[in-house]
Design a protein around this nucleic acid. Structure first.
Lengths: 220, 220
DNA sequence: CGCATGATTGATGAGGATCAAGCAGAGTGG
DNA sequence: CCACTCTGCTTGATCCTCATCAATCATGCG
């Protein structure tokens, strides 16, 4: 699906500004460290990205600081390709992250210039839209436990892991993704653990899915 | 933006089944009456649509009947163009509706076949994604009154009306779009009316925006 | 070890859901 | 033209889920 993107990363440019000093650019890769901003709402959409390793969050803010994380982007996933001239959300590294970046052309010319890339961007955009629609159902109509169960299963499917799912993001990120508070996320996890559906290791940074069938039932 | 679509409507096919008898197809147009299903979740994505007149709702259901309307589609807007082989949501006519339909090809071939159409579909998809992201912020993080204020302003902008905004959809549709109940939608409208920000005519099927600045402030 | 940070747990409260009437407009039929 | 009814909307009373406020606990780090 995304093969064409491999052929078109933008050329490496030397690091110049202080703000970029922490990024180690190797070839076309750019590295970001924990909580570093990749782009902000309002920035030019001159570049979009594919995650090589690590995880990225994209979010929007209300004026009073309320935050909605619309998606987490894991290895292999594209983000930042948008219709307008300005990004409509902010992207930050969740931990240390490596990205490939692509020069983003106007969609008016892209289709003629490079149909293979256009196809990949269209595919990625449609995939993102499908996820967004699924997530609206979650945000608008699911209970707290249903939200958390859905989130865990979705993450497990995307990382194709066995029983153990890595949680690269903090509770506050999960909360702001699911439209909850950290306390409610924590209580929901505790409840699932007490029901024997999951297990949470001591460092709290992962989840073991003990009973996927039960989780699927709880997902609604 | 959508000019290329005009060039590619699918050919008219005679109405055949009883289920389709109520539709009067004139040239490439298809007409649907109130609450009629246009396509269902799981149907083949062989055709997508543009609204000529009327309004369409697209939604998803949970197994127990909870519904989330992900979008309303008004005149001029495209819906039903998706990545997979099956529609991921259901589309219904809100009132009487006229649609143009387009044969939907695989996105793999679309980019090469017809770059202009590919560009339009990509543009429409990115636009839908941007709206979905904005809507996730609403669903996850806004209060009831903020949701209703945002909805009214958004509708007013899209229909480029003066003070009066037509509400083609019922309260239950608004509720299922905003992640609320009809009662809460009604109470929020009443509250806005008491504050002098809007007025609701006797037939309840429209809204007069009396004070847009106040609405914008309430939108958060 | 002591501190900082993030997670969990507990107590309380508020916003919105639910349950239950009541109301008004638009049709319908007499 | 006027009851009568149906449907959708509004309003009121109560309940419940989740937010908020407040400790407490655990982990990791200097």
């Amino acid at each position: 699906m995304l093969a064409a993107l491999e052929a078109n990363p933008i050329r490496f440019r030397p690091v110049e500004t202080r703000a970029e000093a922490s990024r180690t650019a190797v070839g076309p890769l750019r590295n970001f460290s924990k909580d570093e901003e990749i782009f902000a709402e309002g920035d030019d959409t001159d570049v979009f990205y594919k995650v090589v390793s690590g995880a990225v969050r994209t979010y929007k803010l209300l004026s009073d600081g309320r935050r909605q994380i619309d998606a987490f982007h894991l290895a292999g996933e594209i983000f930042g390709a948008e219709a307008g001239a300005e990004h409509r959300f902010t992207a930050e590294a969740i931990g240390d992250v490596s990205l490939v970046c692509y020069r983003s052309r106007s969609i008016d010319t892209l289709s003629y210039d490079n149909p293979a890339l256009a196809r990949d961007v269209l595919g990625a955009t449609m995939e993102a839209l499908a996820r967004a629609q699924e997530h609206m159902l979650l945000l608008g109509r699911k209970s707290a436990v249903e939200k958390v169960a859905t989130f865990l299963l979705g993450l497990a499917e995307r990382t194709t892991s066995g029983g153990a799912v890595d949680l690269p993001m903090a509770r506050i990120d999960i909360a702001d993704h699911l439209g909850l508070t950290i306390e409610t996320v924590s209580r929901s996890l505790t409840q699932l653990e007490r029901q024997g559906v999951i297990a949470v290791p001591a460092n709290r940074r992962g989840i073991v899915l003990k009973d996927r069938a039960a989780l699927r039932r709880l997902r609604a």
